[in-house]
Every structure is written in C-alpha cells, then in structure tokens.
Design a protein around this nucleic acid. Structure first.
Lengths: 64, 64
DNA sequence: TGACTATGTCAAGATGACCTGACTTTGTGT
DNA sequence: ACACAAAGTCAGGTCATCTTGACATAGTCA
C-alpha cells in the first residue's frame, strides 16, 4: 500500500517522532508505514486522515 | 469500530458467504467484522469500499 | 419430519500490526 | 573532527486479523 505520509509530514516540517506523538503510536510504527513495511490498522488510518483533514483514500492508495 | 456492512449486504440480498466470496475472505471474517469482533485490515477496508462504490468513511465509523 | 440455508461461534494456527529498547547510518552544523 | 538530530533497522514480545474445519441454532420449505 502506497501512501503520502512522508510528503504530508514534510509539508508540515514534522519529524517521524513528532508525527508519531500526534498519532499516539511509536516512532518505529510511523517509520514502518512510511517505508512500506506495514499498512496501518484501520483505526490508525482514521487517526491519520483526521490529523491531516483528508480522506483515507487521499492518503493511502492500494491499487497497483 | 461501527460499520454498515450488514445493511449494505441486505440492500443487495447477499449472504455473508456471498459477500465473503466477493471480497476474497472467509465467511467467518465477514461475520467477525459485522458483529464487531474485529476491524478489517486497511487493504480489506479498501476492497469493501470499492465493492460498494463508497468511501471507507461512509461505511466505517470509528468515532464514539 | 427431514433437508437445506444462513448465521453465529469455537479452536488452533499463520501472519500482520503494534510495542520497547538498542543500535547504526546519514546529514547538518559548529 | 565532533556532536547532534533524524531516519532506518533489528530483536523479542504482545495482541489483532486472518485462515480452515467443525459444530449449534434458527428459519424455510417440500
């Protein structure tokens, strides 16, 4: 699953640790999602979308 | 996480087994999601949304 | 009654999504 | 060169999301 987290984070000039804090997950969890090692759970995907005020489908892309 | 799967399925007159087949998951997985035992993975949530031609947020609701 | 379907549930097991803690690598700035 | 911050990675653990197979219950229908 591709995602735009790294770009959204860069636009806000947040570190992975800062994003992790805002999402209430570990820094390693953010890193693993950004680097494509895992997909977030659905509840975490909701928190991410809410944080950036976007729809899940605007941040994550599971086609291709 | 609440969801509208049971209603969407009823509107189409599909059994849990039929929905499971369309989503390529087990019947028990569909049952567990409908009865609130689990949340779907994000990839499965995408497949569900695509099947019903809706956004994930229109089917699943994690607030409250 | 007996057969069939749909639903709900359980057990056991594989794999995925998280955790903490530790360490390395990379880039920046003094 | 040195220090520091950010990012990446690993190990070992827990719990969640799936699997298959089995079984119980309720409803429908010949």
């Amino acid at each position: 699953m591709k995602n735009r987290l790294k770009v959204l984070r860069a636009e806000r000039d947040w570190s992975q640790a800062e994003l992790a804090g805002r999402l209430d997950v570990s820094r390693q969890a953010v890193n693993a999602i950004e680097t494509g090692k895992h997909d977030p759970s659905l509840p975490l995907a909701f928190r991410i979308a809410r944080l950036f005020d976007m729809r899940i489908e605007e941040i994550f892309d599971d086609e291709l």
